[in-house]
Amino acid sequence: MPSRDIALLDVAKTYPLKRGAALAALDGISLDIANGEFVALLGPSGCGKSTVLRIVAGLEEPTSGSVSVGGASPQALSRAHRLGVAFQEHSLLPWLTVRQNIALPYSVAGRKIDGAHIQDLIELVGLVGFEDARPKQLSGGMRQRASIARALVLEPEVLLLDEPFGALDAVTRRRMNRELGRIWAELRITTLLVTHDVDEAVLLADRVVVMTGRPGRVRHIEDIDLPLREHSELTRTPEFHDIVDRLTGLLDATKDA
């Protein structure tokens, strides 16, 4: 599958407040994500990590600095319908069935709906038997599966995940992590995941970027070089715990500061 790299160079974002004051949300963010790499942005809530994702998605413009996706602007990629995204709020349209929701990107792109491909994706995310259900008939985990299937349906060159499991309970979240890991291993698309869950970041990503808040800055980048193993086994290894402990320590330190 074709893929793209992401490059952020010295990105800053400020929001104007009343009376000429301004709120600095991001400052000096530089980050390169290679072709086919899975990077997790880890940080406490309000540190601006979602803003980074929104800038990469082309939903917001940086106040200064530059962002490029595959050498072009993010908007160029979304206009070409080559960007996949899943938000914390599943944002499935309540009046469409699971199948119709997953087919939505085809309608947006004005392309013919590929029913077989959609069925493959429904199998990939484990929603067989729920194709004709409406979102409100599904559990939270199933909605996120549908939302991820929708993000993948046009075979995007970049996948953006903004706390996709943030609204789920711990058990479901762990299971969804396992499945996302399996799906991603098959596709290997350039992926940016925003999360506040250390386990999730370490389990899924090739690299974890730890951010500090107000204004959001990159504090630390951790290369994850764990052996490829079943997640349930991996989480019990001392190497995994070392990394999680160290990153959690960094997050705590940012909270103190």
Binding site: R54, A57, G58, L59, S78, R79, A80, H81, L83, V85, F87, E89, S91, L93, W95, L104, P105, S107, V108, A109, G110, L160
Partner: peptide, 26 residues
């Protein structure tokens, strides 16, 4: 229509008319 839907459609590269037809009108 809630803002996440608009964000979603923007990322998917929808034009204003497409968004109106697929999200806002329903």
């Amino acid at each position: 229509a809630a803002r996440p839907y608009h964000d979603l459609l923007a990322v998917l590269g929808a034009r204003r008319g497409t968004r109106l037809r697929l999200v806002d009108v329903p």
